[in-house]
Design a protein around this nucleic acid. Structure first.
Length: 877
RNA sequence: GGACGUUUAGCUCAGCUGGUAGAGCAUUCGCUUGACGUGCGAAAAGUCAGCGGUUCAAGUCCGUUAACGUCCACCA
């Protein structure tokens, strides 16, 4: 950029060019050269299902801030990007796409389908990397990975086989969550419970050998054909005499036993439970305890099968209707009650889950959970904010076995082969030629694929080469920080922790930095069905990536949700423009001169003031980022740049450069130096604009990306100068304030007389600055001015007179002064009260007491002055 | 049924280890000031949800209540 450029920052002109520059220079690349301490982040791989949404943008931006910061801090930084095959989600998308073409999965077969899926992956995976680049993420593309690439496949097999050999993976028949629409099993984490309106049907079950009957309350009469017992509590006096006897299963004309089990709650429903082992996890357990038959009455589409007798062929909803009416006809239905109850639904398609017994693969969780809990308890893995560790514990401590097989095609095929002869299972990393037991070659691989989280669980180390012992694994692992949303703690974070401990013996990451979700301006979750989603790429095209980044990072506090609104982006864009123009101003003034980008030897108080302030901001921002308080850090940079640098230092400089054109070299040098270094501080947050401007000034480094992050130094603490300039600002502000209160327009200049009460301060050097910035055409310093008809401002160190002649309204001035007096007296009283309080005096720390003492003496002075001025005012009127 | 979060200016939210509350947007007034009107200067605006406690001192720590929100569990 140069001074000849436009008044506004145009992100479109720079973003693509700079990203290419960074990437082609290899600034983001890293290797295990052991040069410096490593800092590693693996990107939570976005699903290849489509475009990135605002949540991804937030997640990636937070990572990029940390990564760029650490890189500039001198770490050997590795940020691994990648995408997730997202088994079920992607498969559903492809099926949906195929449906539009009138094709079914079965039409093209497994191979044909996988071919299509890989084409999908190429296309959408590419979109996503492209979008990640647009956001400005400085990840190492030479390390880009995919959860189904060769290395990850190898890791998945290794993981599966090792767990299997250890007895932690097994295949078995259990009641699992079956989605009749996705046609696959899903894990417990993938079931959402939605409250739905339903009914309690009270059904009569007649005793087999008497006219006595019991009543069962059920929400699912369609499962009656699968009932294999009724159960009551063993201590329930109402039913004790019936235990062991048989009842007639209505509509099926079948006898089933009444059993006793402690699981039954006497005070719930009628106290009698119909046991349907094939269609309820709890009933399945009861069935196991009592050796009950397990009758699966539904097929994969949740349509009733042969076992349901005459109800065969009906969907579960049709069957419910039919069975209820049949029961009614038989007189077995006693009453129907409306109830609200929670129904498990598929997290993807929202259809009601059908608990269904089937053969699936499971990971035994208990032995894995314990070390995973311990490593967080020990603090090896830290959650930020800390409260999320509680959620993690709760889940880990109650975790059930993990169902990992899915009846899908897109994903990692289960590395297990069944022998057609002896029926044994061969589990192997390599494709086996024969059954390990009977050596038969008549073997076939399991048709199912693995849960998508099975491969994501390995992500932090599979991307570094595991299971091979690579240099990268040695050097970059464990990774440092995982950045992710709280909505994914169970799905992913927990699984990575136990998998890593089990496979590598190490934690996967030291910190888990949790952020909230991005909501719309009304606080609603962004969703497709609501149509309130905002596309981050559209925002970038309209306002620039830096504006998007600023909007998402500012005011963001760990773990909390945030709202996204146009106003926020707009003010972010304005901030970018502000910086742009500050730079334009500097360029206009240095006007091609060869300015050294360093702190000059000779400094004015104003120079020292801004350097000192910059130094403090550097310290605070660094500390904030290290504590993951990114929103706070950014806020401080914003305030520093806008309020201190632009509104004051640049304004001071204008006057100085104008007054001493031949003597302003140092001033220009400070402008360039502060600007350059502030841009560095800001670079992790707004990489494009900072780089663009930074490069326009003389630099010894090639790019802000690889420049050294500024550091706090004691050499730049100029307390005295800070004090002087702060007071100067106070004087200017108080004059502006008073003028404004009296409705003096800015284009009307006034005289100003300043009586400095504090001998050690000499503002004369800055006379012109004060004069111009307080809209005055005549400024005088002196003592004991005697000026009539003027507004008087009293500060702790100065008495300022503004003659306003005809403008001054004595009435309002009197009123104002009286109020000022009153306020001061009030404040004085409360301060004095403190000093009289013995406990305060004995217990409060000395500096607090001194502060109060100072306040008291200042206030006392002020009150005397105000009273005197009041007297003058009255005398003169 | 458990757990957690939020409650601060009209709106959206900051406020770290306790020391008389801040920003952005909106509002009002004034400004073609030599980078920026995507700007400059100024103003108004808060019983920090209620109650109780600890403390010399509470927005901040503890307890409790309420409203809203989230997660977990789930009984047929």
């Amino acid at each position: 950029m140069s001074s000849g450029l436009g008044k506004t920052y145009e992100p479109k002109d720079v973003e693509k060019r700079l990203y290419d520059f960074w990437e082609s220079n290899g600034f983001f690349e890293s290797n295990a050269d052991h040069s410096e301490e490593a800092y590693t982040v693996v990107m939570p791989p976005p699903n290849i299902t489509g475009r990135l949404h605002m949540g991804h943008a937030l997640d990636n931006i937070l990572q990029d801030i940390l990564i760029r910061f650490k890189r500039m801090k001198g770490y050997n930084v590795l940020w691994v990007p990648g995408t997730d095959h997202a088994s079920i989600a992607t498969e559903a998308k492809i099926v949906q796409q195929m449906r539009k073409e009138g094709i079914k999965k079965e039409d093209i077969g497994r191979e044909g389908f996988l071919k299509r899926a890989w084409e999908w992956k190429e296309k959408y995976g590419g979109f996503i990397s492209d979008q990640v680049r647009k956001i400005g993420c400085s990840c190492d593309w030479t390390h880009e990975r995919f959860t189904m690439d060769e290395g990850c496949n190898k890791a998945v097999s290794e993981f599966f086989v090792r767990l299997y050999e250890k007895g932690l993976i097994h295949r078995g028949e259990r009641v699992i969550n079956w989605c009749p629409k996705c046609l696959t099993s899903i894990s417990d984490s993938e079931v959402n419970f939605d409250e739905k309106q339903g009914h309690f049907w009270y059904v009569k079950y007649k005793m087999y050998d008497s006219d006595e009957f019991v009543v069962v309350a059920t929400t699912r009469p369609e499962t009656i054909p699968g009932d294999t017992a009724l159960a009551v509590h063993p201590e329930d006096d109402r039913f004790k005499h019936l235990i062991g006897k048989k009842v007639l299963l209505p509509i099926m004309d079948k006898e089933i036993p009444i059993i006793a089990d402690e699981y039954i709650k006497m005070d719930f429903g009628t106290g009698v439970l119909k046991v349907t082992p094939a269609h309820s996890p709890n009933d399945f357990e009861i069935g196991l305890r009592h050796n009950l038959p397990i009758i699966n009455i539904m097929d994969e589409n949740a349509v009733l099968n042969d076992q349901a007798g005459k109800y065969k062929g009906l969907s579960r909803d049709e069957a419910r209707e039919k069975i209820v009416s049949d029961l009614e006809e038989l007189g077995s239905l006693i009453k129907t009650e409306d109830i609200k109850h929670n129904v498990g639904c598929c997290y993807r398609c929202s259809s009601a889950i059908e608990p269904r017994v089937s053969a699936q693969w499971f990971v035994k969780m208990e032995p894995l959970a314990k070390p995973a809990i311990d490593c967080v308890k020990r603090g090896d893995v830290k959650f930020i904010p800390e409260r999320f560790s509680k959620i993690y514990y709760h889940w880990m401590e109650n975790v059930k076995d993990w169902c990992i097989s899915r009846q899908l095609w897109w994903g990692h095929r289960i590395p297990a082969w069944y022998c057609g002869d002896c029926g044994e299972i061969t589990v192997s990393k390599e494709v086996p030629r024969e059954c390990f037991k009977c050596k038969s070659e008549n073997i076939s691989q399991d048709e199912d694929v693995l849960d998508t989280w099975f491969s994501s669980a390995l992500w932090p180390f599979s991307v570094l080469g595991w299971p091979d012992k690579t240099d990268e694994l040695e050097y970059f692992f464990p990774t440092d920080t995982l950045v992710t949303g709280y909505d994914i703690i169970f799905f992913w974070v927990a699984k990575m922790i136990f998998s890593s401990l089990e496979m590598t013996g190490k934690i996967p990451f030291k910190n888990v930095f949790i952020h909230g979700i991005v909501r719309d301006s009304q606080g609603r979750k962004m969703s497709k069905s609501l149509g309130n989603g905002i596309d981050p790429i559209e925002i970038i095209e309209k306002y620039g990536a830096d504006a998007l980044r600023f909007a998402l990072a500012t005011g963001n506090s760990p773990g909390n949700d945030m709202r996204f609104s146009d106003e926020k982006v707009l003010s972010s864009r304005n901030f970018a423009n502000k910086i742009w123009n500050a730079a334009r101003f500097i360029h206009m003034n240095i006007n091609g001169e060869n300015i050294k980008n360093e702190v000059p030897a000779k400094l004015s108080d104003v120079d020292k003031w801004i350097i000192s302030r910059f130094n403090k901001v550097t310290l605070e921002v660094t500390e904030n980022i290290e504590k993951f308080e990114l929103g706070l850090a950014l806020q401080k940079l914003y305030d520093f740049i806008w309020d201190e640098f632009c509104d004051w230092y640049i304004e001071f400089s204008k006057i100085n450069i104008c007054d001493n054109p031949e003597n302003s070299a140092e001033n220009k040098q400070v402008l360039v130096w502060i600007m350059s270094n502030t841009l560095k501080l800001l670079h992790p947050f707004m990489p494009f604009i900072t780089e663009e401007i930074w490069q326009s000034f003389p630099q010894s480094e090639k790019s802000a990306v690889v420049s050294k992050y500024p550091e706090y130094t004691d050499n730049f603490n100029f307390k005295d100068s800070e004090n002087i300039v702060d007071r100067m600002i106070e004087i200017i502000k108080s004059i502006r304030n008073r003028r404004s209160e009296m409705n003096v327009p800015q284009n009307k200049k006034t005289s100003i007389y300043i009586d400095l009460l504090d001998g050690c301060l000499n503002f004369k050097e800055y006379e012109n600055m004060i004069k111009k910035l307080s809209y005055s055409d005549n400024l005088q310093f002196g003592n004991n001015f005697n000026i009539k008809n003027c507004a008087v401002i009293l500060t702790n160190f100065a008495k300022i007179y503004i003659p306003l002649n005809q403008l001054i309204d004595k009435e309002s001035e009197l009123k104002r002064m009286n109020k000022e007096l009153e306020d001061a007296k009030k404040y004085l009283e409360s301060s004095k009260l403190k000093l009289r309080n013995e406990e305060f005096m004995s217990k409060a720390p000395e500096n607090v007491i001194n502060n109060v003492k100072n306040t008291v003496s200042e206030l006392e002075n002020k009150i005397i002055k105000i009273e005197k001025e009041l007297e003058n005012l009255i005398k003169n009127s």
